[in-house]
């Protein structure tokens, strides 16, 4: 049986020194806290049997700079699980750069909204399995969920489920959904929107934003109908690790991988 996936998310900002990336946590895409080296942390996640890893460069789109490849090349030398890289990806060359340096999938967010054709061109060039469309959203004043781009700085007015459906039609192979309102709060996932998006598409949905307890993951699978749950803050502070969380998810009757 196909297992549900648990995906630590490594959010990064560019270090003040050189071309290095530094691992950070955020709360509602703000309140940045520096944690350390993303690749060192990723190796710990591998030892704890994470199913996949997602690396996101938080500033590339905002600063309008090229994606950095150094960390993904270092990660791919020692990590033998699927790696997704994203942040600031605007062109097919950016896709190629990240894939050639060891990424298995590339996530696009701002560029997908501004230039939806990129989804189709990437799908044609690299296959749907390489194309992850990341969707960040928050609730607006009248209580509706709306997609935001540029690291949560620019509103688009798009509905996350409608946008996910369109992204699938254009060739996306996976959706990475993040609730900005829940990001880093540890209050639990937005199950309602997760479910709405999961129902709208036939490709796998990774949901994220808000995990603070092992039961939040289980809820994401059972109520949210997500295929995978991703979390950053939850795993970053070492109080919880993928191994413990995994056992608790299995105890809830959800198929999940236990051994490495």
């Amino acid at each position: 049986m196909l297992k549900k996936r648990l995906i630590p998310k490594l959010q990064m900002k560019k270090s003040r020194f050189g071309n290095r990336m530094v691992l950070v946590t955020t709360v509602r895409f703000d309140e940045v806290m520096e944690i350390g080296d993303p690749v060192s942390q990723a190796k710990i996640y591998q030892a704890q049997a994470a199913d996949e890893l997602v690396f996101l460069d938080l500033d590339a789109s905002v600063e309008n700079r090229e994606p950095v490849t150094d960390y993904i090349r270092r990660a791919a030398e020692e990590l033998f699980m699927p790696l997704t890289a994203g942040g600031g990806v605007k062109t097919l060359d950016h896709f190629r750069m990240l894939l050639e340096n060891g990424a298995d999938k590339v996530s696009i967010n701002t560029a997908a909204v501004e230039n939806p054709e990129l989804i189709t061109r990437a799908y044609e060039a690299f296959g749907a399995q390489c194309v992850v469309v990341a969707i960040d959203y928050r609730q607006d004043a009248d209580g509706r969920e709306k997609v935001w781009i540029r690291g949560g700085r620019t509103g688009t007015g798009l509905d996350p489920a409608e946008w996910a459906e369109k992204a699938e039609r254009l060739g996306a192979g996976e959706i990475l959904l993040t609730s900005i309102d829940r990001d880093g709060t540890r209050e639990g996932l937005d199950l309602e929107t997760t479910r709405r998006v999961a129902d709208a598409v036939t490709i796998p949905v990774i949901t994220s934003g808000g995990c603070g307890l092992a039961c939040h993951f289980s809820e994401g699978f059972l109520t949210g109908k997500a295929d995978a749950v991703s979390a950053g803050t939850y795993f970053c502070f070492k109080d919880e690790n993928p191994m413990q969380t995994r056992s608790q998810i299995r105890n809830a009757g959800i198929p999940i991988r236990i051994q490495t």
Binding site: D51, I203, R257
Partner: peptide, 13 residues
């Protein structure tokens, strides 16, 4: 079954 999404992505027995 609709619960089986395509692409088939993930860890399987």
């Amino acid at each position: 079954g609709r619960e089986y999404r395509v692409p088939h992505i993930g860890w399987n027995d």
